[in-house]
């Protein structure tokens, strides 16, 4: 519950029936608001993701390409001791964005078609997990060695950039994995309390 929701609760209660009923409701809402404010002083919890990504049906990618994309993104950001691209529904989000590019940025769709053509040509979907990792190591080599070239590098960068963006802006990536603590309601800013940082 955000502070806004709490104040709305009060307003709704205030505009409801009068007399005893009004006051009891108002008090409940006020107590709820006070409780919520108290939580805020500890840092308000991030809200849930309003989208039901797990139920999302791909619109841009074919079923086969979507499977390929899922294998690629979960190799980029795998599920290990923390959730990965799959739990964050990265591929679903990418499909949603690329599909929506039709209106103002059709060239974006062309880039993704070329990337999927390339991966189909490499038979990426048939590779084992180890083969996928060594394939990605090969096509990503110019990241570490800028003088090198690889025909798959452009496609790798396209998918990686979008995957990284999708993952770290998802609730899973931002809250569960990065443990981001900002964007909260606080009564005081927690400044640096490390004496050693004053003598760097």
């Amino acid at each position: 519950m955000t502070r806004r929701d709490a104040s709305w609760a009060i307003l709704r209660a205030a505009s409801a029936a009068g007399g005893q009923a009004f006051f009891s409701r108002w008090l409940q809402a006020a107590q709820a608001a006070a409780a919520a404010m108290h939580t805020h002083s500890e840092g308000s919890p991030p809200p849930p993701d309003p989208h039901d990504w797990a139920a999302y049906k791909p619109q841009f990618f074919s079923a086969a390409d979507f499977h390929t994309l899922d294998l690629f993104t979960s190799t980029l950001i795998p599920t290990d001791d923390t959730p990965g691209a799959r739990e964050a529904c990265v591929s679903q989000f990418i499909d949603f964005v690329v599909n929506a590019a039709a209106e103002y940025a059709p060239a974006v769709q062309e880039e993704w078609r070329r990337a999927m053509d390339y991966l189909r040509g490499q038979d990426f979907a048939s590779m084992t997990e180890e083969q996928r990792v060594s394939f990605l190591e090969r096509i990503s080599a110019p990241e570490r060695h800028p003088s090198q070239h690889d025909p798959g590098f452009t496609h790798y960068r396209l998918i990686k950039q979008m995957t990284v963006h999708a993952f770290y802006t998802s609730r899973v990536g931002l809250v569960d994995v990065l443990e981001y603590k900002g964007f909260a309601y606080l009564t005081a800013f927690p400044g640096c309390d490390h004496p050693e940082h004053h003598q760097v």
């Binding site: 809200p47 949603f96 209106e103 802006t169």
Partner: peptide, 18 residues
């Protein structure tokens, strides 16, 4: 409003090209 990136349809970047 306070909006988390995942609450927005395009996570802050807008519909491509928009």
């Amino acid at each position: 409003h306070h909006q988390w990136p995942y609450q927005l349809p395009f996570r802050g970047s807008g519909q491509p090209g928009f």
